[in-house]
Computed example of a mutant assay.
Amino acid sequence: MNTRILRRAFLSGGLTAVLSGCASKFRSDNGAEVIRLRMYKAQRFLILDGADGIVRSYPIGLGFAPEGHKQFEGDGRTPEGSYTIDRRNPNSLFHLSIGISYPNEADIAFAEAQGRSPGGDIFVHGGPRRGIDPMNKRDWTAGCIAVSDRQIEEIYAMVRIGTPIDIYA
C-alpha cells in the first residue's frame, strides 16, 4: 500500500513538472545569436538575422493604418526607420513583448513642430489575452508588430536589448 501511494505521488509530481514546463512562456534558445531584425511592412514579414544569415522569419500584423511612417500618437501606424530593441516586458498585456526605441530624436522633433505628440510604446508582441487572433494577418494593433504567442516566445528568447531593428515600408 505504501508503495502504491509513493508510486502515485511520484507519477503525479512528474506529470505536474512536465506540464508546467510545457506551459511556460519563457523559452531558452541555444541557437545563433540574433544581431539584427529586419521588418518589411508591405510584405508583412519580420526577419531575425544572425552573423551567418537568416536565423528565423515570421509573418506579422501591423497597426490598423499600416501605410506610412508613424508620426503622431493615435495614428495607428507602425514606424519606419532604424531603431533598437530597448526593453523586454515579461508581463505584457500581449503575452510577451519586446520594445522598439520609437520615437527617436527626429520623430520627436517632427511631432513637436506640428504641435503633436509622437506617441510611443511600440512593441513586437504576441496576441492579446483574448478577442483577436493575431495570426489572421489583420492589421489590428495601435502601431505595434504582432506575431503569434508561440512566435513571440521564440523572439523573446533570442533577441536582446540593444539589437538593431530596421523597419522598411
Rank of each mutant, 00 (worst) to 15 (best):
R7D: 13
R7M: 14
R8Y: 13
R8F: 13
A9E: 12
A9F: 13
A9S: 15
F10V: 15
F10S: 12
L11C: 13
L11N: 11
L11R: 09
S12M: 15
S12F: 12
G13I: 08
G13Q: 07
G13M: 13
G14M: 11
L15V: 10
S20H: 08
S20F: 11
S20K: 09
A23H: 05
S24T: 15
K25R: 15
K25D: 09
F26A: 01
F26Y: 14
F26D: 04
N30D: 14
G31F: 06
A32I: 00
E33D: 14
V34M: 02
V34Q: 02
V34C: 02
I35H: 00
I35L: 06
M39L: 13
Y40I: 02
Y40Q: 07
Q43R: 11
Q43Y: 10
R44F: 07
F45N: 13
F45W: 08
I47T: 12
L48R: 02
L48K: 01
D49S: 09
A51F: 11
A51G: 11
A51E: 15
A51P: 15
A51S: 15
D52N: 15
D52K: 14
G53C: 10
P59W: 04
P59R: 13
I60Y: 01
I60W: 01
G61V: 05
G63L: 05
F64A: 06
F64W: 14
F64D: 09
A65L: 10
A65P: 05
P66C: 03
P66E: 00
G68M: 07
E73N: 13
G76F: 03
G76N: 07
G76P: 03
R77G: 00
R77Q: 04
T78H: 03
P79S: 06
P79E: 06
P79G: 00
P79T: 03
S82K: 10
S82F: 13
Y83M: 02
Y83W: 06
Y83P: 05
I85A: 01
I85F: 04
I85Q: 02
D86H: 09
D86T: 10
N89T: 07
P90V: 08
N91Q: 14
S92M: 09
S92F: 05
F94H: 03
F94Y: 15
H95L: 03
L96N: 05
G99V: 02
G99F: 02
I100E: 06
S101D: 06
S101V: 07
S101K: 03
Y102H: 06
P103C: 03
P103L: 07
N104D: 15
A106Y: 06
I108R: 06
A109E: 14
F110T: 08
A111P: 01
A111D: 08
A111T: 11
E112G: 09
A113V: 01
Q114G: 00
Q114H: 13
R116E: 12
R116S: 09
S117N: 15
P118E: 07
P118Y: 06
P118G: 06
G119W: 02
G119M: 04
G119N: 08
D121K: 12
I122T: 00
V124H: 01
V124F: 03
H125E: 10
G126N: 00
